[in-house]
Simulated scan of single mutants.
Amino acid sequence: MIRVREFDPGTDRAGAEAVERMCEVGPSGTMSLFTDLLGDPVCRVRHSPAFLMLVAETVDNNEIVGLVRGCIKTVTCGKKMSRDGPRSYSPIYTKVAYILGLRVSPFHRRMGIGLKLVTQMEEWFRENGAEYSYMATDIDNEASVRLFTGRCGYSKFRTPSILVHPVYAHRLPTGRHVSIVRLSPAESELLYRRKFATTEFFPSDIDSILRNPLSLGTFLAVRSDSYRWSGVDDFLSDPPESWAVTSVWDSKSVFRLEVKGAGRIRKGLARASRAVDRVLPWFRIPSVPDLFRPFGFYFLYGLGGGGPDAVELVRSLCRHAHNMARSGGCGVVVTELASCDPLREGVPHWKRLSCAEDLWCVRRVADDYSIGEVGDWTKSAPGETIFVDPREF
């Protein structure tokens, strides 16, 4: 007999962490969730506007055998013509819920525990006014895909790419004739709302994200030989021909990852590459950091831009973030983009560490069946870009 209830941080922490450790995330040989730095399994969602964590436990001995996290927020699901002009659009918002961190002990699988956790979480979503629920999983995770698309009624929705780049022992040059400006939270919010508000999944509380202590700053890249920064108002009223922007999130302070399945020879070669890189940094050897023990990472969100040099400016921002991660003691830099995003070419990454298709599935959970301004969002075609909330990565 299994019962599902709300997580109690006073009594359930050890049991929840034990389940986390037993459940690898990601295919063999890639990154997998290791442990929570803060010792608080709910910390990955506590930065969201509304969140909940549920656990499944055995009735006879109160052993925690499963858990799931969920959060609710308001995001952009489409756009409509604005009164400001013929080419102006305003966002269409909807209240969505996100399921993450579904874990079931390997010794208690195929018993319907995952379904119970998801079903009860969805009840909380409906009670709090969510219209849609979505989740993300590796496209090769057959058990998860089967549960959500088969038994829970979710539809395959989007397939963004997770791009991972290791942090070397040497610094990376940000490029000639490139100026990188750090924006204040107020300037960042103004830019994001003006330029990205109609991007799918753009959070209406972007100000809360930008002012969160885990957000390490927003950085704008422009050509220094053709544009001089004079403030965000001037930038928005008369933008340069090319520009790019990104924000950096400190995931290292929330949880850590590790790579499993590597043999002794591979570990030895990685160790040798780091040693040479430290001694001869001017050679700029693409050394492999120590990813075989718990390591942290920085996550790039809000990555975007425009103009003929946008790809090159994105590359400069990624190198700047790499240097930040190097100073911060991180093992990798991670970002997630729509698979067809044209700026993806500017994001350096290693294919072996990256995930080409991170499957997002969605379903409508609202009790009423009235369709909003965008129609049935679950049936909408994907766009070129998508906004990935760092609080849910």
Rank of each mutant, 00 (worst) to 15 (best):
residue 45 V to Q: 14
residue 82 S to K: 02
residue 81 M to G: 10
residue 38 L to E: 08
residue 56 A to R: 05
residue 54 L to V: 10
residue 77 C to S: 11
residue 33 L to G: 11
residue 41 P to N: 11
residue 62 N to I: 02
residue 75 V to Y: 03
residue 41 P to F: 14
residue 52 L to A: 07
residue 37 L to M: 11
residue 82 S to W: 06
residue 82 S to A: 01
residue 68 V to D: 09
residue 39 G to E: 04
residue 56 A to K: 03
residue 68 V to Y: 07
residue 41 P to Y: 06
residue 84 D to L: 14
residue 40 D to G: 11
residue 54 L to A: 05
residue 74 T to Q: 03
residue 85 G to E: 05
residue 34 F to N: 03
residue 78 G to P: 09
residue 40 D to P: 10
residue 59 V to A: 03
residue 71 C to K: 10
residue 46 R to V: 06
residue 45 V to Y: 07
residue 38 L to I: 00
residue 58 T to R: 04
residue 80 K to E: 13
residue 48 S to L: 08
residue 45 V to T: 11
residue 79 K to F: 10
residue 45 V to L: 14
residue 62 N to S: 06
residue 34 F to K: 06
residue 63 E to V: 12
residue 82 S to R: 02
residue 58 T to E: 12
residue 57 E to G: 12
residue 81 M to P: 00
residue 62 N to E: 01
residue 58 T to G: 08
residue 62 N to M: 00
residue 56 A to N: 02
residue 74 T to F: 01
residue 57 E to W: 04
residue 74 T to A: 04
residue 86 P to I: 01
residue 76 T to N: 15
residue 33 L to E: 04
residue 83 R to K: 15
residue 54 L to W: 06
residue 80 K to H: 04
residue 55 V to R: 02
residue 66 G to V: 06
residue 57 E to K: 13
residue 43 C to H: 11
residue 72 I to Y: 10
residue 38 L to P: 02
residue 70 G to W: 08
residue 41 P to R: 01
residue 48 S to C: 10
residue 38 L to Y: 03
residue 53 M to C: 07
residue 78 G to D: 11
residue 73 K to M: 15
residue 54 L to H: 01
residue 67 L to E: 01
residue 81 M to L: 13
residue 41 P to Q: 05
residue 49 P to G: 02
residue 30 T to D: 05
residue 66 G to D: 10
residue 59 V to L: 10
residue 75 V to S: 07
residue 43 C to I: 15
residue 45 V to I: 13
residue 71 C to G: 09
residue 49 P to L: 10
residue 77 C to N: 07
residue 48 S to Y: 07
residue 52 L to C: 13
residue 79 K to Y: 13
residue 68 V to G: 12
residue 40 D to Y: 14
